[in-house]
Amino acid sequence: MTEAKIFKHRSSLAKKMAVPGGKAIDDALQAAEAALDTHRDAAMETLQATLTRLDGSCAERDQGQVYLQAAAMLDMAGFFETGPLHTAVFSLCEISDPAGDHVWDLPSVQVHLSAIRMILSDDCRVTESSQILLEGLASVRRRSAEKSAT
């Protein structure tokens, strides 16, 4: 039997990575965050538009659409520093997920939408009122989970 020959090939990417120079990681991260921040206003407008569509889906009692729109909102909120908004939208996703362990309850969804609206109007800042809102949403979420357990 013949022995296998092992050839070492160095890719062009490996060669480029070995060349000294380039940006420091911290500089690259700061540049990326600055570039992303230029899109923040447009993202906030998109979040407001999604919230309006969520109101329509609630009026139609369409759990699937509520979940899909909340998930899209969560994705958008995750790109920017949105503090309490991300937490509130994640909570909405949990209680509206058709495959989740929460009972579909329209008033609970509407409470979440009201809280999200307040957080957005406060520019997604962490404030005393946003902390109170998040505590209230956690309570609503626990109640919803307890209903599904019984």
Rank of each mutant, 00 (worst) to 15 (best):
R141V: 01
K5H: 10
F80M: 11
F90V: 04
M118E: 13
S96C: 12
M73E: 04
S108L: 05
V111N: 07
H9A: 09
S121V: 07
A31Q: 15
A72C: 08
S57V: 04
I6A: 14
Q65A: 15
A138W: 06
F90E: 15
L92M: 11
K15M: 09
E128I: 02
G136Q: 10
Y67N: 12
A43Y: 09
L29P: 08
L29A: 14
S114M: 05
D26H: 06
T50W: 05
F90G: 12
T52E: 15
D62E: 06
L68Y: 07
A71L: 10
E60V: 07
S144K: 04
A88V: 01
L106C: 11
I116G: 03
G22L: 03
D105N: 09
L120F: 05
M76K: 13
S11F: 03
E3Y: 09
C93M: 06
A99N: 14
Y67D: 11
S57Y: 08
I132E: 14
D123C: 07
L134P: 07
A115Y: 01
E45N: 13
V111C: 03
A115T: 04
D122N: 01
Q30A: 15
F7A: 09
S139G: 15
G100Y: 02
A14W: 03
A49Q: 13
A77R: 02
W104V: 00
R143N: 15
A149R: 15
L29V: 13
C93E: 04
K16R: 02
A70T: 09
D97C: 03
R142C: 08
V19I: 03
W104R: 03
T127L: 08
A77D: 04
D62N: 15
S148V: 00
I116N: 06
S144R: 02
D101I: 02
Y67C: 08
L134F: 05
F90I: 01
K23Q: 12
A99H: 12
V126D: 13
Q63H: 08
F7E: 10
V111Y: 02
L92R: 07
G78P: 12
V66A: 11
L47K: 00
L29Y: 13
I25H: 07
L29G: 10
G83H: 02
V140F: 09
H102S: 13
C124A: 12
A77Q: 02
A24W: 07
F80V: 05
K15G: 06
K147Q: 12
G21W: 09
D62I: 00
E94K: 11
T127Q: 11
M44L: 11
L120H: 05
I95F: 04
V109F: 01
G83N: 06
F7S: 09
E45R: 13
E94C: 10
L134G: 08
R53M: 13
D26F: 01
S130I: 03
T46L: 10
G78A: 14
A77P: 02
I119S: 00
Q65E: 14
L74R: 15
Q48E: 14
A99I: 01
H39W: 09
A14N: 00
M73C: 11
E94I: 05
E135T: 09
